[in-house]
Design a protein around this nucleic acid. Structure first.
Length: 522
DNA sequence: TTAGGGTTAG
């Protein structure tokens, strides 16, 4: 028996992911005179959106439908809203719909249109339209407004206003507000709004934990993660990614390992985001072998996967491995193209390995072969590289040729190089530049004083210290930490409070001695 | 058909 048309169409669409199948189906529907009926046109547009990610073909179908309804406009705007590149098309189609008569927009279409607002005024204009159409008291529309406003620059005030005026706030609207605050770095307000919630689900926990980790509040992020688990909310891939990022930054290998176990037990090991975050966590915690193992296991290595692995090796000075991964990426990475992050990692690897020529070569490759405009990070790496190698003329040429103002990393790298190679004249220049950029940073003034000391300019030394005392601008001491047997040990610069300080310094000195021997330095 | 959450950089 021949299956009916409905079943045939739906069956084909559910089993295929190919444009050709869609075209065959379209041809078949055309012969039956059904290609432009609302029901089938809608199904075909949804297929283009959800399965093919092809808004262009969706538009082709859309443009051949003789009489459009609101439902089809919504489908087309959703297709455009799925890709940032087609957001302008979504808005212009929506404006076209508003100008033409009928179909009129309903409350379903506004949330989709709001997703495509690039800036505050676009959201405001849609907001006006929402009020005009009488949909401003629909909770879903209000939530979409809160979300849209909080994503455009300078829109948080409006987001807050809409949120405060809502009479029926859901867990979704609260979550939109939490991430709105987090997005502008206001973790405190995000925590406060989260505290006001009566119900919390996994995405709302995620919004707050992500807000913490994205703003550098790693300890708080970890605490929330533990609380979330304790309160029996099951972390998902998103939660795990944020928590792993915090573990990496804090060097919390034990917790990182626990999360790895959780990932396996809960079927999250197929999520590429999760695997990348694991690679990053292991790398930052010093377990390069584990990082590599997880990386190798990932069957869908994307750009971030490669970048994370390169960064791991770069971070630990294993420049050869970093370069090998890069070459593997370019040659057999399944068409993955390096981006600016890749080159930051690669240049760092060269810096840590003292590979000046190679670093230069990769810098050129980035610009010439990949057409990537160097960012300040790349200049920082290059100058670090040249400075360490004592090639100051070239370093200064690079500084002069930069298309942006050199920042503290650039001058700091140069200053470091000067210290190693005894170029006190240039060091003085770099230190002064650093003070110009951040006059209240006491650390820079101390560096300058040290440079003057080496030059024997004792009056200048006294002057610098006088300013320093007047400003009371001592630098916040540098801090690092390591986890051993479930315990985190913190060390501040010049801090001798650890009971094993003496032993630690003996080991440290022997390591420095060993390094100098290897590097041929005195 | 409708609203919220994600990794990598000196």
């Amino acid at each position: 028996m021949k299956p009916n048309l409905n079943e045939h169409v739906l069956d084909t669409l559910s089993k295929s992911n190919h444009l050709n199948h869609l075209k065959q189906l379209q041809a078949y529907l055309t012969t039956l005179g059904h290609a432009h009926t609302h029901f089938y046109a809608f199904k075909l547009i949804r297929f283009c959106t959800l399965t093919l990610s092809n808004p262009t073909y969706a538009r082709l179908i859309f443009d051949h439908i003789p009489s459009l309804n609101t439902h089809l406009f919504t489908a087309m705007i959703t297709a455009y809203a799925a890709h940032p590149a087609t957001h302008p098309s979504a808005l212009s189609l929506f404006r076209h719909m508003l100008r033409s008569q009928p179909p009129r927009p309903n409350h379903f279409i506004f949330p989709h249109a709001l997703k495509t607002c690039p800036e505050s005024c676009a959201a405001e204009s849609l907001h006006a339209q929402i009020v005009k159409s009488g949909f401003h008291e629909y909770p879903v529309v209000q939530t979409a407004l809160v979300d849209s406003y909080s994503k455009v620059s300078g829109g948080l005030g409006n987001a807050k206003k809409v949120f405060d005026e809502m009479s029926d706030r859901s867990v979704v609207s609260f979550t939109a507000m939490v991430s709105g605050f987090a997005r502008v770095g206001d973790v405190e307000s995000a925590v406060r709004v989260f505290g006001e919630m009566l119900d919390r689900d996994v995405p709302s926990w995620n919004a707050l934990i992500a807000g913490c980790t994205q703003n550098g509040a790693f300890t708080q992020g970890i605490e929330l993660f533990r609380r979330m688990v304790f309160e029996c909310n099951r972390p998902n891939g998103v939660t795990v990614v944020c928590a792993l990022s915090a573990c990496g930054h804090m060097g919390m290998l034990q917790l990182g390992r626990w999360i790895h176990g959780y990932v396996y037990k809960n079927g999250l090991a197929f999520d590429s985001f999760v695997l990348n975050a694991l690679v990053d966590m292991y790398g930052k915690c010093g377990s390069l072998g584990k990082a590599r193992k997880v990386f190798e296991m990932n069957p869908e290595k994307g750009l971030t996967s490669w970048n994370s692995m390169i960064n791991c090796f770069a971070l630990h000075g294993q420049s050869d491995s970093a370069i090998a991964i890069f070459e593997q990426m370019v040659e057999g990475g399944g068409g993955v193209r390096p981006d600016e992050v890749t080159f930051v990692g690669l240049l760092n690897a060269c810096t840590h390995g003292g590979l000046v020529e190679k670093g230069y070569w990769y810098f050129e490759m980035m610009v010439q072969e990949y057409g990537i405009e160097p960012q300040i990070e790349h200049y920082g790496c290059l100058i670090d590289l040249l400075g360490r190698a004592g090639r100051f003329d070239e370093a200064m040429d690079v500084v002069k040729g930069m298309s942006m103002e050199p920042d503290e990393v650039v001058w700091g790298s140069l200053l470091n190089g000067c210290k190693v190679h005894g170029r006190t004249d240039l060091a003085e220049f770099a230190a002064k530049k650093l003070i110009e950029i951040d006059p209240h940073n006491g650390g820079y003034r101390i560096m300058l004083a040290n440079v003057y000391g080496e030059l024997g300019k004792w009056d200048e030394v006294r002057n610098v210290w006088r300013t320093l005392k007047q400003q009371k601008s001592y630098k916040v001491p540098g801090c690092s930490w390591i986890e051993v047997d479930d315990q985190v040990h913190q060390f501040y610069s010049l801090d001798k409070s650890n009971p094993k300080t003496e032993d630690l310094y003996i080991v440290l000195e022997s390591l420095v001695g060993f390094r100098n021997e290897v590097m041929g330095e005195p």
